[in-house]
């Protein structure tokens, strides 16, 4: 197996509310470049918390996340933010797009954050919107788009800086199955065509067919790891 692009060891997150909630318990995970990982499990099992930790949006109570040789524990908040600009793409369940910006501006924002020139940003924005089939809605504001269309724009934005890994938290949670499938197909296409690495959380069992690896979680712990290329590890 090639060098993992994303890795976590004994990742643990405890929220200090009441008696304390262990949202993520000693999770160990390795993701190779080009993999499509699906994280499944019932509501409240810790999928969102895990993705937040993997994306550097939150700090673990203990354990370590390593993304492209960067140990998150060694990075300050600002360094984490800078790291997210270039290495991580996010797609959330809702409130994905910045409501004050148009679809094109939303897609362009991550590229502006890393200081790309105007022309290049404009060109790539169009390219990305084209790939998700939203070119004709470029100047629309998020209010004027359907949920599925918003998610497609969000996918384009997540991919704008060609991140090492795209983290998606229930990207289809708000969509009907047809739009949901469309978003997953987009992921799948980027995965196949550009070798982009995806980690997607979802409870839809139907999405297993897109994944190369399925991680089953329960009560914060990984209970089963399913390698869709064949083997099953208990």
């Amino acid at each position: 197996m090639s060098e993992p692009i994303l890795k976590c060891n004994e990742l643990h997150k405890r929220f200090l509310v009441g008696d304390g909630v262990d949202a993520v318990k000693d999770v160990r995970l390795t993701v190779a470049p080009g993999e499509f990982v699906l994280i499944m499990g019932p509501s409240g099992c810790g999928k969102t918390t895990l993705l937040n930790l993997l994306g550097g949006l939150d700090r673990p109570t203990r354990g370590e996340v390593i993304l492209k040789h960067r140990k998150f524990s060694r990075l300050s908040e600002n360094e984490l933010a800078r790291m997210r600009r270039t290495l991580v793409g996010f797609v959330f369940q809702f409130f994905n797009l910045l409501p004050d910006l148009t679809a094109a501006e939303n897609v362009a924002l991550p590229m502006r954050m890393i200081g790309l020139g105007h022309e290049e940003v404009a060109r790539r924005t169009l390219e990305l919107l084209d790939e998700v089939g939203m070119v004709d809605r470029a100047s629309h504001s998020p209010y004027e788009l359907s949920g599925g269309e918003q998610q497609r724009v969000a996918v384009a934005r997540a991919l704008a800086n060609r991140p090492a890994v795209v983290l998606a938290d229930e990207p289809t949670g708000n969509l009907d199955s047809q739009s949901g499938n469309r978003v997953m197909e987009l992921f799948s296409r980027f995965n196949a065509r550009h070798g982009q690495t995806f980690v997607v959380a979802s409870h839809d069992r139907g999405f297993r067919e897109y994944a190369t690896k399925v991680v089953h979680m329960l009560d914060g712990a990984v209970v089963r790891m399913e390698d869709r290329t064949g083997a099953v590890t208990p």
Partner: peptide
């Protein structure tokens, strides 16, 4: 949420 999104996308504090 808007500000959180900006921070998630990489805006520094």
């Amino acid at each position: 949420r808007y500000l959180g999104m900006l921070k998630a996308l990489g805006l520094e504090s």
